[in-house]
């Protein structure tokens, strides 16, 4: 029993920080899973669930989805840039990504405000969807609204934290002159950002499309 056995690391060359981010992503995915499955369970028990697109604006959100996918692309380009040691490219692409994230949030706020303030078209659509007499679409309008707001707001907060996270990395990259040696920090940021993007595909499908 006295021979030394070196630890054969089963996780390849991944850094400690990257492993932690993967673990966090799994945990966060379980939170989203709880919300999505909970929403689905409530939906299954209901006889009337509004048709897709009746209340929610699918084209607008489809554009938002496209925007978020584009930011995933710019995030990959940012990582690619810093791996080549291109600091300017890193900053530019991170700034693009951040702008995309802010635009996504802006469109979401526009969508929410539209629902909160209400107008005649919305009232008419709400009546068609079964919410007769509702003048606006707020969390207390019904279980449909509650599920919509819980899931999209939870995701929106993730985008917000992602934007703040990008801002921090952008600040650090500027202050400490990131080189390819620090590309790991950008890669970990990228993992989180891609996760937000991926989970949005689920949220968009479950909440808006089906």
């Amino acid at each position: 029993m006295s021979e030394v056995i070196a630890i054969r690391d089963p996780w390849g060359k991944a850094t400690t920080g990257k492993l932690a981010m993967w673990l966090f992503i799994i945990m966060d995915g379980l939170s989203f899973g709880g919300l999505l499955i909970g929403g689905a369970a409530l939906r299954l028990s209901m006889s009337n669930w509004p048709e897709p697109g009746l209340v929610l604006n699918i084209p607008l959100t489809a554009f938002n989805t496209f925007l978020l996918i584009c930011t995933s692309f710019t995030m990959v380009m940012a990582l690619n840039a810093i791996q080549k040691g291109d600091q300017k490219g890193l900053k530019n692409y991170l700034a693009f990504t951040m702008a995309g994230g802010i635009a996504f949030l802006g469109i979401q706020v526009y969508e929410y405000s539209h629902f909160f303030l209400g107008n005649e078209t919305l009232t008419q659509h709400l009546a068609e969807a079964g919410f007769v007499g509702a003048s606006n679409f707020v969390p207390s309008t019904g279980t449909y609204a509650a599920v919509f707001y819980a899931t999209t707001a939870f995701h929106g907060l993730h985008v917000l934290s992602g934007v703040i996270y990008i801002a921090c990395i952008l600040y650090a990259a500027n202050k400490w002159n990131y080189t390819s040696a620090q590309s790991d920090k950008v890669e970990i940021l990228g993992l989180f950002w891609h996760f937000i993007d991926l989970i949005w595909i689920f949220v968009f499908t479950v909440i808006y499309l089906i």
């Binding site: 673990l23 799994i26 945990m27 966060d28 379980l30 939170s31 989203f32 899973g33 709880g34 919300l35 909970g38 939870f154």
Partner: peptide
């Protein structure tokens, strides 16, 4: 903890 606390957090 890592698997189930996120679930109760959602709840």
């Amino acid at each position: 903890n890592a698997i189930f606390v996120p679930v109760i957090a959602a709840g």
